[in-house]
Amino acid sequence: MKINIDQVANLARLNLTEEEKKLYGEQLSNILDHAEELQKLNTDKVAPTSHAIPMKNVFREDKAIPCKNTKDIMANAPEEQDHMFKVPRIIEE
């Protein structure tokens, strides 16, 4: 199955070289081919599943706990101003 590697790269915000496009394009196509193979199976009587293990209703209680690692998290900011992450202006045209 042919994949539009330019579109995929664009959606993932990746800047790929021509060689990379060729390499990853082939690899991703192979994966889709395999999925296509699986599609041939008749699954009419099988409910869709998003999980391998039969689990449901895993919840936590609504309790606020102060965050301790805010310093480490701020350390990830490329640039910081007023304790906020400074990002390039958002261009929407």
């Binding site: 936590r60 309790k63 606020a64 706990i65 102060p66 965050c67 690692n69 805010t70 998290i73 701020m74 007023d82 304790h83 906020m84 992450f85």
Partner: peptide, 15 residues
């Protein structure tokens, strides 16, 4: 489990 409280100092209710 971060608090949802409105008006906290920026980036203090983050994990």
């Amino acid at each position: 489990s971060c608090s949802t409280k409105f008006g906290a100092e920026p980036n203090t209710n983050v994990c």
